[in-house]
Amino acid sequence: MTSLSSEASRAKVRVDLQDNDETAILVAAIRKDNPEVVVTHLPGIVKVTSPTELVIRRESVEAASGKTWDPNEFQLQLVTYYGHFSTWDEDEILISWPKH
């Protein structure tokens, strides 16, 4: 059980975002905080995959856009995700598999 769950906690997570200007800003912020992410495209979609976990920080998005950003706004770009929203609060969104 331990080995399985620790393997799971290292497993990939992903977000699929609508391909538009606001997403470009988000992706820039995500890259800054998650240097290991891989970004790929499907028509209309940007897929951001992380080998471990993926964090989206309000500060970084605000720095990239020059505007205030409420993490709830992430919903306007989000198409789907894979993993688990471990944190979604006023300062950051963290997607990861839980560590049991």
Binding site: L42, P43, G44, I45, V79
Partner: peptide
């Protein structure tokens, strides 16, 4: 939804792609 809505986009169906992705954001 995801491959299908990308397919809509690829086949020139912008409204379907838009509703699909917009619905998916709720789906999350």
């Amino acid at each position: 939804f995801v491959p299908f809505m990308s397919g809509a986009s690829f086949n020139g169906d912008l409204p379907t792609m838009t509703f699909g992705f917009s619905a998916q954001s709720d789906e999350s």
